[in-house]
Design a protein around this nucleic acid. Structure first.
Lengths: 203, 203
DNA sequence: GCAATAGCCTAACGGTCGTTCATGAAGCTG
DNA sequence: CAGCTTCATGAACGACCGTTAGGCTATTGC
């Protein structure tokens, strides 16, 4: 009784993955509205109608991509944070993992961030709530660091926005072929962030 | 021989401004591709065909908005920088003006940044070149500050990306009705940036 | 007062969009 | 084998897109 392929048909759900990859790339290159179902189908190697066997609508492709990205980002950063004890270490771990994750998934990160307004009201509210929860984690890290005397900032809310924006922005310019490794870029951002939080330099 | 109105017809070029305002708002709310000429015309109080009396195409509305925004941003920041002498003062002035300008023109800033990919290749290249030149100004401010011994950063290029991203991002979340004034937000960003550049705190 | 023109209109063009429908080939199940 | 499900297809639907052609009106310059 060996593991049988769960689905029938010709390809299994490689097709689903092909659609998702095509959609990420096209949404990132052209934007959600400028990328058509026909283009997605072309790049996935199928006819447009076949997409509707795997997704109920164009928007459902987008929401799937976005929620998958946030799922994985949350998991990765939470795990990194939990492996440090003090506020400085936790913030450094969070920044490093956030940067690395955005560098490894530049297109998905970009689509998740920039196409929120393309969603219908319900999906948009849902995604914004998830994004807010993620941001709240950083804000709380800052607040804890202030209480412990490790950080010195005027406004934790503004600081968390600023930190997340600069780290998320790595997805906009990072080039795997470039001269800087992702680890190096992450280290630089940890330095910048800890500096802006008023942490004593620990060279 | 008093100054005569330069154009004839019913409204002068109030119409042109109405189209630009409608376009900024709709591009910001829905995105360039999701906003239609009919919606722009509706909001400007005219019929779609009338837009083509003032603009030769939908894309020319976008490029006009984007280039106007960069024109004014460049002027404002350059003037602010020129009124300071030392690297720390220049960077503080640049950050403050950049933040204030983005807070005062959130929608235009957002459209200029996020709809570059909607442009045809020629217009896109032109706008990217202008953006690069603007970023180079910040990078040079950092380099000068390092040479003078005022700043301490590992990588000026990455630092300038990070600084600009967090300051530009103000356009994404700033709310004029919120509890923080734009001046206050600008001051906080000056603190954060100077901190990340390793400037001694000057309370 | 008369021609020219600026400004805006209605109507329509060809094209593309997201989506649906009916159909059929291929594999699994009993 | 028969029957069901999975996966994909070609063709078409109505809606909407950016844009244009042609005409009307009011103001301007002479």
């Amino acid at each position: 009784m060996t593991e049988a392929p769960p689905t029938a048909g010709r390809r299994g759900d490689d097709t689903r993955q092909a659609i998702e990859i095509a959609a990420i790339d096209l949404f990132a290159e052209l934007g959600y509205h400028a990328a058509s179902m026909r283009q997605i189908a072309d790049r996935a190697g199928i006819r447009p109608a076949a997409i509707y066997h795997w997704f109920e609508s164009k928007e459902s492709i987008l929401t799937r991509l976005q929620n998958d990205f946030i799922d994985q980002l949350e998991d990765a950063v939470e795990e990194a944070v939990n492996q440090a004890d003090d506020p400085v270490g936790k913030m450094a771990a969070a920044v490093r993992e956030h940067v690395v994750f955005h560098g490894r998934h530049t297109r998905a990160a970009f689509v998740t961030d920039s196409e929120i307004r393309a969603l219908s009201p319900n999906s948009r509210q849902h995604l914004l709530a998830r994004r807010d929860a993620y941001e709240a984690m950083f804000k709380q890290l800052i607040t804890k660091g202030i209480e412990s005397g490790d950080f010195r900032v005027s406004d934790p809310a503004v600081a968390s926005f600023a930190i997340l924006l600069q780290c998320t922005g790595v997805a906009l310019w990072y080039d795997p072929e470039g001269s800087l490794s992702l680890d190096r870029i992450a280290s630089i951002h940890v330095e910048l962030v800890l500096g802006s939080l008023g942490v004593k330099v620990q060279t």
